[in-house]
Design a protein around this nucleic acid. Structure first.
Lengths: 98, 98
DNA sequence: ACTACATATGAACAGTTGTTCAAATGTTCA
DNA sequence: TGAACATTTGAACAACTGTTCATATGTAGT
């Protein structure tokens, strides 16, 4: 289930990962991308965010490998990176719903 | 696996939860308590933290119901609150280890 | 090449967070 | 009650973070 003694560095990286989940704008972006992949403008509009703020946050999410980007013509389409993202969000949601 | 459309408030609370996991001191505390329950001083010593900083962080962890406290004589013994905590940490660790 | 659209980036600023230091509260035992 | 131990709390400060605004980069079609 869980490793016995992770290194200090691993614990630091783990905290860095959770830091990325620890912002409501980013969580909203992740949930929106869970429903379907989207371009930056579409994402910004659907969440009532500025285009700039959305792009900045997507950069953070990309750096942590929580989302992937692919270009489609003029647009850059973002989608969730993998299943871990969904699992972590779901587990967290279970905790807060209690 | 994951809810379709969580409320804005639920997403906000979810982010607040991850914010708590998003600090290496708190993650270190959680891992230490995973190994065994401990008092504040013992915890502080084993992690080379000041007693005050440890107590402040335990307060944050208590507020999010990630740890529980019980008094034993002079000492207050802390332990992990439930299985969700372990699951979330484990899933996060899986992600960073890739 | 030029225009329009789509995204990314940099600097700056306000708001938040974690630590330290000092002092307070609570508990046990003589 | 008084002393010693254990934990909590509050204030203050430096460091970090997310947003905005302005500007730059990239792409497609004419």
């Amino acid at each position: 289930m869980m490793h016995r003694s992770p290194s200090e560095e691993a614990l630091y990286e783990l905290a860095e990962l959770f830091k990325v989940f620890g912002d409501s704008t980013r969580v909203r972006i992740l949930y929106a991308l869970y429903e379907r992949s989207m371009g930056v403008n579409e994402l910004a509009d659907s969440l009532s965010l500025s285009q700039s703020a959305t792009s900045h946050q997507l950069k953070v999410l990309r750096a942590s490998k929580l989302v992937r980007a692919r270009r489609e013509g003029k647009a850059v389409i973002y989608s969730l990176a993998d299943g871990h993202v969904v699992t972590i969000l779901a587990q967290g949601m279970e905790h807060v719903e209690e």
